[in-house]
Every structure is written in C-alpha cells, then in structure tokens.
Amino acid sequence: MSFSLIFKDELMGFYKSKAMIFLWIGLPLLAILVHVSSQSADMSLSILVSLVVSSIGGLLASVMLTVNIINEKDTKVYDLFLIRPLKRWHILVSKFLAVYICVSIACIISILIGLLVDYTESQIAFDIIVQNIYEPFIMTLSIIAISSAVGVLIGVVAPSILVGVLLVIFGGNYVSSIPSIIPFVFNIQNPFTIVLILGIIITTVLMALSILLFNKKEF
C-alpha cells in the first residue's frame, strides 16, 4: 500500500514539474525544428526524434533525479518518511519509475509526432515506418532507463547538487550509452534484443546498488 501511495505521489510531483512540461512540449518541438532546419532527406523525423529524445531526455531524467534526491536528502525531507512503517527502497524505486514513465511518455509523444510527419511527408506505408522506428524506440527506452538509474545512484552518493550534476553530465552519459555500443562493437546479431537485455540488467544492477547504499545511509 505504501509503495503505490508514494509512487502515485511522486508521479504527480514529477508530471507537474516545469522540467516535465519542457520534456512533453519542448522535446517534440525541438525535434521538429531540427528536422525543418536540417532538411535532411536521409533520416526520417521519427528516427531523428528518437535520437534527440534519448540523448536529451535521458540526460534530463538523470539530472532531475539526481537534483531531486540530493535536494530532499539535504533538506531532510526523508526524515518524515523514514520514521514511518515504510521501506527505504520504496522511495527510490517510486522516484525512478515516476521519472521513467514521464520521460517515456514524452518520448512516445515525440515519436508519434515524428511518425505522423513522416507519414504525411513520404509515400511510405505506415507499417513500414513503424517497423523502422521500433528498434530506435527500444534503444531510447533502454537508454532512458539506464540514465534514470544512474541519476538515482548519483543522487544517493553525491555530497552536493553541483557534484551530482557534474557526475551525471560527465559520467552518466557514458554509462547510458553502454548498451547501444556493445552489440555493434562485438558485431552481435539481433543487436536490439541485446540492447534491451543489457538495458534491463544495467538498470537493475544500478538500482540494486542505489538501494543498498540508501539502506545503509544515516540521515
């Protein structure tokens, strides 16, 4: 009961935040602007949108989570939660899921807009466009999941917001790109299945580590 309550609250807190409004409206707008200004005929808007969303969305997710957790840790917000019959992991997992769902929805909205533009601009059948976008979409979701988990981990360990943001910008991006690089470096067949599996494994490991450290933390 406590987990669903915390999760619903966190979801409400994040989707109402200014950063999320930027993600939901700004990102699709940014992708369209890039598409219009580049006039690139080689890349469809939906694929371009996926790339933009995965890089900017992932970074935003990790920065949001890091800043949020460090801020709440510093201002002692957790004290009032931790003295109630509530598991510590509920706090971290609910934050992770809330941000992941919000960013994923932003990603879906952006990609759907891209699909719509692609469909109206080109003569290619809709199911072929969808087939082409499927794999970048999986990669986007994996990268956002890892970025979010990195954000949680850095939020738990970083001593200040500045250090946390620097770690996210200079370290988080590298970690989140691991699943998208490995299959291609080792020339693995069916790379997107591996991307998905690696995404799940890395996210789980990072979240488990965050929970372990958060459980040991003294407030």
Binding site: D9, G13, D79, L80, I83
Partner: peptide, 17 residues
C-alpha cells in the same frame, strides 16, 4: 515506528505538495 510521532530539528516537506 507504529508507535512513534517525530518532529526533526529542521522539518521539511516536498515543496510541490
């Protein structure tokens, strides 16, 4: 914890609530 009510030295709530 079921029996405890607690007020920390510097009480803080999530700002958006």
């Amino acid at each position: 914890h079921k029996f405890i009510g607690y007020l920390p030295q510097k009480v803080a709530f999530q700002q958006w609530r």
